[in-house]
Design a protein around this nucleic acid. Structure first.
Lengths: 363, 363
DNA sequence: CGTTTACGTGTAACTAGTTTCACAAAAACG
DNA sequence: CGTTTTTGTGAAACTAGTTACACGTAAACG
């Protein structure tokens, strides 16, 4: 122990010479040395390579246990082994919608041993770009761009650019909750049938006998707003009902703004027996505005929402609305991201939730 | 070009000899070679090291651009540079609560250039353990264990074990949305004052003149259930009102089960003028049950919820409830995770939301 | 009993960047 | 004009694991 210490080795605990503060600790080399095998053998043990003698394996495992060794997943990932990552990029992490889509993605990722990275852009293209850069550097498997986006060429080009950049590192971009981009049809979209949802609402109202059907929603500019509005227009057209611009009102997706728009509509004097709204939020605003004006719901005014947010079935009257398959949306997107499903556009059906807020109009 | 090709180098495009399919591509060496500098210099360029000649830097940048080089964040992370990761581990990704906490965490992480990894345990300890292992391997900065957990010694020990295991790789464990663990007080908890929230509800009801106040919530077993129930008991005790076991009912955090429990309570014949519920979900169930029995709300029965879920202010009557600071919860936890705040227990105040569902009792 | 096959293992070269150290050239100082 | 300091750079050694290849032993086969 003492005499042979000429110089050469003496096997200090390997480590990085300087940096005495570096606590990080035990690596594969240490374990291998402790178990008196080569790094290769030790590596094989942790990679579940069967070509390892049971005894060696036991020794390595014991050494690992003793030294508190933890495989470095980063090094593994660098080699292309180990978990992969799906990035979930959303405008804002808000509400049950986001949660449900995220849950769908996570369930598939988790089941397949992959991880989900989540981030919010706050609608800032700068941040969006930054995120894509970081995710590229992190070599994620796929980026899910989730939710409604600006429906303009500027976004389309940006997205196409992201897809190109991601392809460079073998990652894919998947649009989730917005339709395919016309100018880049190869960019996969997983969406639910937003316009059909609103159309179904209008159909039902027409069936009940309504003709003066208003629409309150966000204006042009975002994909969801446009799709839902287009569902309204399409259905009216199909029923040969002229679109009366005074019945189409703009409101942000907020209860308060929905109330404001509904109030203006109802006080404007135009005849209206039913309102279709872009979202449940707006519908609830409409409830409030109508009540404030002494309009009885649903007898004097039918209202249909969209999203089937929790609890809207417990409002008085219970809100008739459209339920999008949010969880499934996440599931399908994740499946494509992980190559468990072919990279084709997906358009999921929505479910019309007939409740009490839409009834036959008076007279 | 030809004669000097004795053997040695000839500098083939670097790459990994075999694996002709490997698309992955350009690495730092390639860029350095293309820019006719050493890897060291090229590295310095991307690490924003100032000790690089402007001209070399420009050349490297140009080469990178031309070759489509993307820094490998995994290699960087392995060296301890680059983004760090906060893991957000939750039982289930459900509802606005989860979303709000997640948004809080993400906002802090994003602002500081870090990433958020999200996963769900589905309440399965096996999956939980697996997740912690993976997160350890991935060398995350911190694991946020979010939401209510089993309030038993078995969980406590498990959590303490996770904390130990994570400490081995310099990561921390932070409990978020549940109280500190008595047997391991060093394990940081970021929570909101759940019992005080329910106490405030009871206080208000007592102030209004109620004495027969029921409680419907989950039974023992989970921290949130216990804290909220204890708030009820504590407040009654403080007001010298005996706790009547027939007024304390068990229901899962589901509207349907809340309705079931409320129905049983209201039909049992015990005198009751107000119900405090563990969650808004249960409160809404109680609304339904009461209505079904022809009980007028709030005249004949006051109800108070907890969570201030979206829209509950739009029910009829508008639900009086307690608003927890979910977003802030995430913010504070993330701040501790990133060492922006000291690792101390945090207990955030809740806000009592006085609306219309709790009024003076008749007679 | 000799040959073939299977098994187990170590060496060394890979995955991709970062950083220390030494050293040169250029700029600043005396 | 000589010395000191600054600036820039490259070689090589690090971060941590994986794996192709070569080689030796041992069991199975003929």
């Amino acid at each position: 122990m003492s005499i042979m210490s000429t110089r050469d080795s003496d096997k200090k605990p390997s480590r990085g010479t300087r940096g005495p503060d570096r606590v990080t600790a035990v690596n594969l080399r240490d374990v291998a040395a402790h178990a008196r095998v080569s790094v290769a053998t030790a590596s094989r043990v942790f990679a579940d390579n069967p070509n390892v003698n049971a005894e060696s394996k036991a020794r390595v495992l014991a050494s690992a246990e003793q030294l508190g060794y933890v495989v470095n997943g980063l090094a593994r990932a660098m080699m292309g082994r180990g978990q992969q990552t799906i990035a979930f990029v959303v405008r804002a992490m808000i509400g049950p919608t986001f949660a449900a889509i995220a849950a769908g993605v996570e369930s598939i990722a988790g089941r397949n041993g992959h991880m989900v990275l989540m981030s919010a852009t706050e609608g800032d293209p700068e941040r969006e770009r930054d995120l894509i850069r970081i995710l590229r550097e992190l070599r994620v498997r796929s980026v899910l761009l989730v939710g409604s986006t600006e429906s303009d060429a500027s976004f389309d080009e940006r997205a196409a650019g992201y897809a190109r950049d991601l392809a460079q590192v073998n990652a894919s971009l998947i649009l989730c909750g917005r339709p395919p981009i016309a100018s880049h049809p190869d960019l996969v979209s997983v969406n639910y049938d937003q316009s059909a949802g609103v159309s179904a609402a209008v159909d039902e109202l027409v069936r009940l006998g309504h003709r003066r059907i208003a629409y309150i929603g966000e204006g042009r500019g975002m994909t969801t707003a446009e799709l839902r509005l287009s569902g309204y227009e399409e259905a009216l057209r199909r029923h040969n009902i002229a679109i009366d611009p005074s019945l189409v009102r703009t409101a942000a997706n907020l209860e308060a703004d929905g109330a404001r728009a509904a109030d203006e509509l109802l006080r404007s004097g135009v005849a209206v027996t039913a309102i279709v709204t872009m979202t449940d939020n707006i519908a609830i605003g409409a409830y409030r505005a109508a009540r404030a004006l002494g309009i009885r719901l649903p007898e004097e005014l039918s209202i249909v929402g969209f999203d089937d947010a929790p609890i809207v079935g417990d409002l008085t009257p219970a809100l008739t609305t459209v339920r999008p398959p949010f969880f499934d949306l996440g599931v399908r997107a994740a499946e494509i991201a992980l190559d468990l499903a072919p990279p084709e556009h997906v358009l999921l059906p929505v479910q019309f939730m007939k409740r009490d807020s839409a009834i036959r109009p008076k007279a």
